[in-house]
Amino acid sequence: MTVLISGSAFDPWSYLAEYQRERAGQAAQTGATAVFVGSMRDQNEGHEVQGMLLEHYPGMTENYLEKISREAVQRWRLNDSLIVHRVGELSPGDPIVLVAVWSAHRKAAFEASRWLMEELKSKAPLWKKERLAQGSRWVEHNTPG
Protein backbone atom coordinates (compact mmCIF):
# COMPACT_ATOMS: atom_id res chain seq x y z
CA MET A 1 0.00 0.00 0.00
CA THR A 2 1.63 3.21 -1.16
CA VAL A 3 0.55 6.85 -1.08
CA LEU A 4 2.65 9.60 -2.60
CA ILE A 5 2.11 13.34 -2.98
CA SER A 6 4.35 14.64 -5.75
CA GLY A 7 5.36 18.29 -5.89
CA SER A 8 6.85 17.86 -9.35
CA ALA A 9 5.74 16.33 -12.64
CA PHE A 10 5.53 12.52 -12.69
CA ASP A 11 5.05 10.00 -15.45
CA PRO A 12 2.36 7.58 -14.21
CA TRP A 13 3.30 4.90 -16.76
CA SER A 14 6.97 4.67 -15.89
CA TYR A 15 6.14 4.98 -12.17
CA LEU A 16 3.67 2.11 -12.53
CA ALA A 17 6.14 -0.03 -14.48
CA GLU A 18 8.76 0.48 -11.75
CA TYR A 19 6.22 -0.29 -9.00
CA GLN A 20 5.11 -3.42 -10.85
CA ARG A 21 8.71 -4.63 -11.13
CA GLU A 22 9.25 -4.12 -7.39
CA ARG A 23 6.20 -6.17 -6.46
CA ALA A 24 6.94 -8.96 -8.95
CA GLY A 25 7.16 -11.45 -6.07
CA GLN A 26 3.38 -11.14 -5.52
CA ALA A 27 2.48 -11.43 -9.22
CA ALA A 28 1.23 -15.03 -8.92
CA GLN A 29 -1.51 -13.98 -6.42
CA THR A 30 -2.82 -11.21 -8.69
CA GLY A 31 -5.44 -12.00 -11.31
CA ALA A 32 -6.54 -8.40 -11.87
CA THR A 33 -4.88 -5.00 -11.95
CA ALA A 34 -6.98 -1.85 -12.47
CA VAL A 35 -5.32 1.47 -13.26
CA PHE A 36 -6.83 4.95 -13.40
CA VAL A 37 -4.91 8.03 -14.59
CA GLY A 38 -6.46 11.49 -14.44
CA SER A 39 -4.88 14.38 -16.33
CA MET A 40 -5.38 18.11 -16.63
CA ARG A 41 -7.59 19.33 -19.49
CA ASP A 42 -7.24 22.67 -21.27
CA GLN A 43 -11.00 23.42 -21.00
CA ASN A 44 -13.40 23.75 -18.07
CA GLU A 45 -16.91 25.21 -17.84
CA GLY A 46 -16.57 26.87 -21.24
CA HIS A 47 -13.20 28.52 -20.65
CA GLU A 48 -9.72 27.77 -21.89
CA VAL A 49 -7.51 26.83 -18.95
CA GLN A 50 -3.85 27.78 -19.27
CA GLY A 51 -2.53 26.31 -16.04
CA MET A 52 -3.52 25.10 -12.62
CA LEU A 53 -2.31 25.28 -9.04
CA LEU A 54 -3.08 22.27 -6.88
CA GLU A 55 -2.96 22.99 -3.16
CA HIS A 56 -2.99 20.38 -0.38
CA TYR A 57 -2.82 20.19 3.40
CA PRO A 58 0.57 18.58 4.04
CA GLY A 59 0.12 15.74 6.50
CA MET A 60 -3.68 15.56 6.40
CA THR A 61 -3.83 14.82 2.66
CA GLU A 62 -1.41 11.90 3.02
CA ASN A 63 -3.23 10.65 6.16
CA TYR A 64 -6.56 10.74 4.37
CA LEU A 65 -5.29 8.89 1.28
CA GLU A 66 -3.69 6.26 3.55
CA LYS A 67 -6.96 5.87 5.46
CA ILE A 68 -9.03 5.22 2.31
CA SER A 69 -6.31 2.88 0.95
CA ARG A 70 -6.47 0.79 4.14
CA GLU A 71 -10.27 0.71 3.91
CA ALA A 72 -10.17 -0.41 0.25
CA VAL A 73 -7.56 -3.11 0.92
CA GLN A 74 -9.70 -4.53 3.76
CA ARG A 75 -13.10 -4.22 2.08
CA TRP A 76 -12.08 -5.72 -1.29
CA ARG A 77 -9.24 -7.94 0.05
CA LEU A 78 -6.78 -6.28 -2.31
CA ASN A 79 -3.23 -7.53 -2.67
CA ASP A 80 -1.97 -3.96 -2.97
CA SER A 81 -2.96 -0.36 -3.75
CA LEU A 82 -1.15 2.71 -5.06
CA ILE A 83 -2.15 6.38 -5.12
CA VAL A 84 0.06 9.16 -6.53
CA HIS A 85 -1.33 12.72 -6.58
CA ARG A 86 0.30 15.83 -8.02
CA VAL A 87 0.38 19.18 -6.21
CA GLY A 88 1.87 22.53 -7.27
CA GLU A 89 1.83 24.20 -10.69
CA LEU A 90 0.44 22.10 -13.56
CA SER A 91 0.08 22.59 -17.30
CA PRO A 92 -2.64 21.12 -19.57
CA GLY A 93 -1.88 17.48 -20.33
CA ASP A 94 0.00 16.92 -17.06
CA PRO A 95 -1.01 13.81 -15.13
CA ILE A 96 -2.79 14.72 -11.85
CA VAL A 97 -3.57 11.40 -10.25
CA LEU A 98 -2.68 7.72 -10.54
CA VAL A 99 -4.74 5.06 -8.75
CA ALA A 100 -3.88 1.37 -9.17
CA VAL A 101 -5.11 -1.70 -7.33
CA TRP A 102 -4.12 -5.36 -7.46
CA SER A 103 -6.54 -8.17 -6.56
CA ALA A 104 -7.37 -11.80 -7.25
CA HIS A 105 -10.41 -11.04 -9.43
CA ARG A 106 -11.60 -8.19 -11.68
CA LYS A 107 -14.75 -7.27 -9.72
CA ALA A 108 -12.72 -6.19 -6.70
CA ALA A 109 -10.18 -4.34 -8.87
CA PHE A 110 -12.82 -2.34 -10.78
CA GLU A 111 -14.91 -1.54 -7.72
CA ALA A 112 -12.02 -0.62 -5.45
CA SER A 113 -10.29 1.66 -7.97
CA ARG A 114 -13.54 3.51 -8.66
CA TRP A 115 -14.32 3.82 -4.95
CA LEU A 116 -10.82 5.15 -4.22
CA MET A 117 -11.13 7.80 -6.95
CA GLU A 118 -14.58 8.93 -5.75
CA GLU A 119 -13.44 9.08 -2.10
CA LEU A 120 -10.32 10.99 -3.11
CA LYS A 121 -12.31 13.50 -5.15
CA SER A 122 -15.03 14.08 -2.59
CA LYS A 123 -13.03 14.12 0.65
CA ALA A 124 -9.21 14.34 0.30
CA PRO A 125 -7.95 17.86 1.15
CA LEU A 126 -6.90 19.03 -2.33
CA TRP A 127 -7.96 22.21 -4.11
CA LYS A 128 -7.59 23.38 -7.71
CA LYS A 129 -7.09 26.94 -8.82
CA GLU A 130 -7.33 27.44 -12.59
CA ARG A 131 -5.41 30.07 -14.51
CA LEU A 132 -7.47 31.53 -17.37
CA ALA A 133 -6.68 34.27 -19.88
CA GLN A 134 -8.97 36.55 -17.78
CA GLY A 135 -7.40 35.73 -14.39
CA SER A 136 -7.55 32.92 -11.82
CA ARG A 137 -10.47 31.10 -10.20
CA TRP A 138 -10.82 28.37 -7.58
CA VAL A 139 -12.68 25.30 -8.82
CA GLU A 140 -15.78 24.99 -6.65
CA HIS A 141 -17.53 21.89 -7.96
CA ASN A 142 -16.56 18.36 -8.85
CA THR A 143 -17.95 16.68 -11.94
CA PRO A 144 -20.15 13.67 -11.10
CA GLY A 145 -18.26 10.35 -11.18
Partner: peptide, 12 residues
Protein backbone atom coordinates in the same frame (compact mmCIF):
# COMPACT_ATOMS: atom_id res chain seq x y z
CA UNK B 1 -7.80 23.51 13.83
CA UNK B 2 -8.06 23.89 10.05
CA UNK B 3 -10.87 25.31 7.93
CA UNK B 4 -11.21 24.83 4.20
CA UNK B 5 -13.66 24.98 1.28
CA UNK B 6 -15.13 21.88 -0.45
CA UNK B 7 -12.31 19.78 -1.89
CA UNK B 8 -11.67 19.44 -5.65
CA UNK B 9 -8.82 16.97 -6.12
CA UNK B 10 -8.45 14.26 -8.73
CA UNK B 11 -9.27 14.92 -12.36
CA UNK B 12 -12.13 14.76 -14.87
Amino acid sequence: IAYFPPVTGGAV
